[in-house]
């Protein structure tokens, strides 16, 4: 067994000290040592987003972070999302039926919170691009995207987006995959010849 190290960090606003092996991921320590099992393991190598947490405010895959790297950093997990009652995103997910099995849900919510922090009024395409790192196998994403856009609208109406009004530049599609892929129509609106 290798030597363990002491790590001092802040999790969901509370100072937390834990002991871990350097090879343990943040995901594993959150779940197995700290009992914060809301963060899920879906793939263990950064390809599904179920383990998304905020590290110093930015969404990351906690399976791709060594727990020792959390020294002195701030972490927010799904358990830290609801403050006074549910976060508007959580409420919107419930009302839109944006979850089925619920395994990807914590990762989506944390990721979506970061999206709305950075882009309080995302377009559908922006939301899809931002959330592309979160896989869902149950919903086909339709209700998730609707819930995120609805939550954004509600937060705007409530003014709860607060200071987060960063310049909201559209991230134009930059793939070589399809010309003007960002112009993809959504179902519900008629597909018209260009």
């Amino acid at each position: 067994m290798s030597t363990k190290v002491i790590v001092e960090t802040t999790i969901n606003g509370v100072p937390e000290t834990f002991v871990c092996e350097p090879r343990q991921t943040l995901l594993e320590v959150l779940r197995e040592e700290l009992g914060l099992t809301g963060t899920k393991e879906g793939c263990g190598n950064g390809n599904c987003g179920a383990c998304c947490v905020l590290l110093d405010g930015r969404p990351v895959n906690s399976c791709l972070v060594l727990a020792v790297e959390a020294q002195g950093r701030e972490i927010v997990t799904i358990e830290g999302l609801a403050a006074d009652g549910l976060h508007p995103l959580q409420q919107a997910f419930l009302e839109h039926g944006a979850l089925q099995c619920g395994a990807c849900t914590p990762g989506f919510l944390v990721s979506a919170k970061a999206l709305l922090d950075a882009h309080p009024r995302p377009t559908e395409q922006q939301a899809r691009r931002w959330l592309a790192g979160n896989l869902c196998r149950c919903t086909g994403y339709d209700k998730i995207i609707r819930a995120v856009l609805d939550a954004a609208e509600r937060m705007q109406a409530d003014g709860s987006a607060g200071e987060a009004a960063l310049a909201d530049k559209a991230e134009a599609g930059a793939t070589g995959n399809a010309p003007q892929s960002s112009s993809r129509p959504t179902a519900g609106e008629e597909v018209r010849p260009a």
Partner: peptide, 16 residues
């Protein structure tokens, strides 16, 4: 629903 959006729902790997 509330358990699942707050991370409290107990999945198999959450057993301790």
């Amino acid at each position: 629903g509330v358990d699942k959006v707050t991370g409290r729902a107990q999945f198999g790997a959450d057993v301790r």
